[in-house]
Simulated assay, not measured.
Amino acid sequence: MNSNLVRFRATYICVLKEFTNCQNNLRFVFIPSRRKLSTTNHCKNSGLNMSTTINCYSSSENESFNTGSGIIGGYEPAKISSNILPSAMKTKFFKLSHTNDNEDVIESCVRILHRGGIVALPTDTLYGVACLAQSTEAVEKLYEIKARNPLKPVAICVGDLYKVCQWTRFPQGLIQSVSKTLGLEDKLDCQRPSSPGVLYGLLEDLLPGPVTIVTERSPSLNNTLNPKTSLVGIRVPDHKFIKDLTNRLREPLALTSANVSGEESSLRIDDFRSLWPKLDAVVDDGEVGTRYVNKTLQYAKEGSTVVQILNDGVSFKILRPGCAYENTVSVLKCKYGLKLTM
Rank of each mutant, 00 (worst) to 15 (best):
C190Q: 15
C190W: 09
Q191R: 10
Q191F: 11
R192P: 00
R192E: 15
R192Y: 10
P193R: 13
S194W: 14
S194N: 15
S194C: 12
S194Q: 15
S195L: 13
P196M: 08
P196L: 09
G197C: 12
V198T: 15
V198F: 12
L199E: 10
L199S: 10
Y200L: 14
Y200E: 15
Y200D: 12
Y200F: 15
D205Y: 01
D205F: 03
L206A: 05
L207W: 09
P208Y: 10
G209L: 04
G209E: 04
G209R: 01
G209D: 03
P210N: 06
V211C: 09
I213S: 05
V214G: 13
V214T: 12
T215V: 11
E216Y: 10
S218Y: 09
S218E: 13
P219I: 10
P219H: 13
P219D: 14
S220G: 11
S220I: 03
L221E: 09
N222P: 11
N223R: 13
T224R: 14
T224A: 12
L225P: 06
P227G: 05
P227A: 06
T229D: 10
T229I: 11
S230L: 09
L231I: 01
L231D: 07
V232L: 08
V232T: 12
G233H: 07
I234R: 03
I234Y: 02
I234W: 10
R235A: 09
V236P: 02
P237W: 08
P237E: 02
D238K: 15
D238N: 15
H239G: 06
H239Y: 07
F241S: 01
I242C: 08
D244F: 00
D244S: 14
L245S: 08
L245V: 04
L245H: 04
L245E: 04
T246E: 01
T246W: 00
R248A: 11
R248N: 01
R248K: 14
L249G: 00
L249Y: 00
R250M: 06
E251F: 00
E251D: 00
P252R: 06
L253H: 01
A254G: 04
A254W: 02
A254I: 03
L255A: 01
T256V: 01
S257P: 05
S257A: 11
S257E: 06
S257M: 06
S261R: 06
G262M: 09
E263R: 14
E263S: 10
E264K: 13
S265Y: 01
S265L: 02
S265N: 06
S266H: 03
S266Q: 05
S266W: 06
L267D: 07
L267W: 05
L267N: 11
R268Y: 12
D270F: 11
D270Q: 14
D270N: 14
D270Y: 10
D271R: 09
D271T: 07
F272T: 04
R273G: 00
R273P: 00
R273Y: 11
S274E: 15
L275K: 09
L275R: 10
W276E: 02
W276I: 03
W276Y: 02
W276R: 07
P277M: 08
P277H: 06
K278I: 00
L279D: 05
L279P: 04
L279Y: 07
D280E: 08
D280T: 03
A281T: 04
V282F: 07
V282K: 06
V283I: 12
V283W: 02
D284K: 05
D284W: 05
